[in-house]
Amino acid sequence: MTLPEAEHNLSLAVEAVVTRFGAMVRQVGRRYRLDEADLDEVMQEVRIRLWRAQRTSEQIGEVSTSYVYRTASSAALDVIRRRRSRRAEHHQSIDAEDGAVALAEPAPDPHGALEGSEVVRQVAQAIETIPASRRPVVRMYLAGHPREEIAGLMGWTEGKTRNLLYRGLADLRDRLQAMGVGWERAEEAG
């Protein structure tokens, strides 16, 4: 086999491995609102790492799922670190450029909007008072995640999840009522 042929076969083998794993991540990620651009960035990193591994196409073809998974996990962490670093630099440059400029004042609100923003603020405050063991569950529920997903993420039983969510929502209801905000009890949470 000539060098270009070997290179070409290597390229096909890497692409096959990356495509297979990427397709599965996409399929799973649809449940979680996965940003496809994030996955593309990770899978490109996986391609580069497999290429760097300097294996032959036969070896790449035999690469186990666990190897690709570990490579993708590690690549995802690196992508996240790089992105955070870029965000931090961006914030620093904005701070440096606009240090003396005050944040824009919000536009004058009509009465209804002001009232709404007050309730929004109260809800945000009330959430913070829920005990730490229940607060994340309530956050997930209010963000639209079903109970089954919460249970799966935390490794809890259905009963434990339901119990924590029920109590957390009760805490929130009590707090909001103390603030003068009424709330009809949820059917779907119980």
Partner: peptide, 12 residues
Amino acid sequence: DLLRSIEQAGGA
């Protein structure tokens, strides 16, 4: 969302 998609795909 990214990390758990990768985790679950690896497991599946």
